[in-house]
Amino acid sequence: MSRQRSLGIAFALAVIAVAIGVVLSYSIHWFPVQASVQAKNTDRLYHVLVLASIPIFVIVVTVILYSIWQFHMKPGEELKDGPPIHGNTRLEVFWTAIPTVLLLGLVSYSFVVLHENEKKPAREIQIGVTGQQFAWTYQYPPSVTGGAPLNSSQLYVPKGESVNFGMHSKDVIHAFWIPAFRLQEDVVPGITTHYRATAVRLGNYPVVCNLLCGLGHSLMRSTVHVVTEAQFQAWIKSQVTAGSSTAAAGSTSSGATG
């Protein structure tokens, strides 16, 4: 078989492999549901990265397989050497420059997505997150409750509203990860860390501690409830009432015993 013909076959197979890769990359369900604005942006970035990676991987594998097919030692070649090619400056400049440009392009696009995901919106609400071995609690400040601050073991967020989570830890480092939002940040003793999420899909999604925090780490999970604005206000109201009544009961009982 002539060199041209075998190269043609290899090229055709490589194109087919790329096509199959692209189809697969769109047909596999890589991620959990997209429950936030940020999730949509990040997933798009992921697909761009996969699309850029497929041809590179296919080129590498094609060259290896083609070399095995065409250049493997044939009987009688036991003592034969290949041609003494020491290099090719043009080719080397090419495969230095092209990946550099491609990588800088991708990383620039990732910064655009990062900026989009983190920019400060016109209006946002604050919710506090406290990590401790091995549970999450959430603080709703007066600006959200419209009254006394609320401390709860449940996380409710209104759909369509940007939420700024302010996180701190009582003991060791945890990580506050909501896979459906594609967002996480470590919860570090001594400092407050932040991220913003805008939920866009109603439902209940897992909250996961994603940094080893001790024996109960595997079970340090919680749930985020994405609800409508009205449901959110109703839930806050019910919690504040329940909370104040228990607080009142607590103060009476402590007054009685004291």
């Binding site: 590498v60 060259v63 290896i64 050497d81 090619i85 991708l106």
Partner: peptide, 27 residues
Amino acid sequence: AITTAIIAVPTGIKVFSWLATLWRGVL
């Protein structure tokens, strides 16, 4: 992030050079 992306370039040079070494050899 920029340096992390760029460090792939010298690694890529090595991979491509190995591939070019295979080319027309007696494997």
